[in-house]
Computed example of a mutant assay.
Amino acid sequence: MLLNYLRLLLLPFSFIYGLAITLRKKLYDWGIMKSVKFDLPIICVGNLAVGGSGKTPTTEYLVRLLADYKIAILSRGYGRKTKGFILADDTATAETIGDEPLQYYQKFEGVTVAVCEERVVGIEKLKENHDLIILDDAFQHRAVTAGLNILLFEFRKLGTLQFLLPAGNLRDVFSSRKRADVLLVTKAPVPLLHVAQQASINELQPNNTQKVLHSYLKYGNLQHLYTEESLPLESLKDRQIFLLTGIANPDPLIEELGKYTEHIKHEKFPDHYSFKTEDIKKFKSAFDVSEKKEKIIITTEKDSKRLKAAGFKDLLVNLPVYFLPIEVDLFEEDKITFDELILNYVKSNRRNR
């Protein structure tokens, strides 16, 4: 509650921030600030808020859908300790390219993954050898004119009062949604009632060319951090879960785990948090002193990249540490529309290489 009051004190700064980004937006709209268009399909996946809307699993959905093409994923590489253009290879770590790009690289063989703060520079280096480029989290990067913009909105946050930074979590004004081609509502409940579907459409007020589509999360089997072992979620029944997260919004994950057990101890860190040895030691101590016989450590797939890369194996290797993979899928009619739209766009704009 105190934090909410403190945020209200920041509203004047949010107003100034809003003026600044609106002016920047107009400078691009008027052509005063230049935006580069490229002669190959470029799909941008973005959102208006800071983190937590499902960009990573949505990007992975696109990679699976477009598996017949030579794909490059270009990201800023948030949280990395390097600068400039870096092409992911087997030496890459979360510290060199960021946790999400590392996840893409390790998950998809044959897909090029690169990071670069300047997307124009990154595209220039990738465009000759690829059929298409997916820009991860680049909706606000107006220096590039993407051929197809997919803008994500979290279902639960639609219809709630949200403020611009720093008072709130919005990094762009709501009117910017008009630039997008697809307004994808993420993390929708299953089943999705028609009235709820219509409510989100009414909230987003799409123009005549925009599609409002709905997606939901699918959870896979738990995967051991260091071995090939996997466990079904049903095995969590009545277990004590020690949950370790460094993501923007762990609530859907907690809700999913809560279907199997009410015994969840959650250690929450900020999005892209760089875990420290002391953090892991403290977490391990809490696990060790727990008297519950059936206990397990769970983290997210994104967090697992930082845990493995940061040299914590000596502390964790003998513990039951698992991560929970997630995927995005769309409801039946929306899936047909979305897949067809994406495939037609790439097919129509692909160069003859």
Rank of each mutant, 00 (worst) to 15 (best):
L244F: 10
L132G: 15
T186C: 05
R306S: 07
N352L: 10
D29I: 08
D279R: 05
K284I: 06
N352K: 08
T160R: 12
V173R: 12
D29N: 10
L158E: 14
F312I: 10
E118N: 15
D137L: 01
I247S: 15
G168Y: 02
D251P: 02
N318T: 08
Y345A: 04
V289Q: 02
P325Y: 14
A72I: 03
D39N: 10
L126M: 05
F242L: 06
Y226L: 04
Q198G: 04
P166Y: 06
W30Y: 11
E291L: 08
E124P: 01
A88F: 02
P57V: 03
L222E: 15
V144K: 04
K237N: 04
E267N: 12
G98F: 13
I336V: 15
R179H: 10
I254V: 15
L330H: 05
S14F: 05
D271Q: 07
Q240A: 11
L236Y: 15
L8Y: 12
V45W: 07
A188M: 13
H272R: 14
L48I: 13
I16V: 15
L27S: 09
F155E: 14
P232Q: 06
L222K: 01
S175W: 11
R80I: 05
L3M: 12
K335A: 05
G110K: 07
Q198E: 14
Q140Y: 02
F139R: 11
L192N: 01
I133C: 11
L233Q: 09
I280Q: 03
K292C: 11
E117N: 15
K70E: 13
P189F: 00
R156V: 00
G77D: 10
Q140N: 00
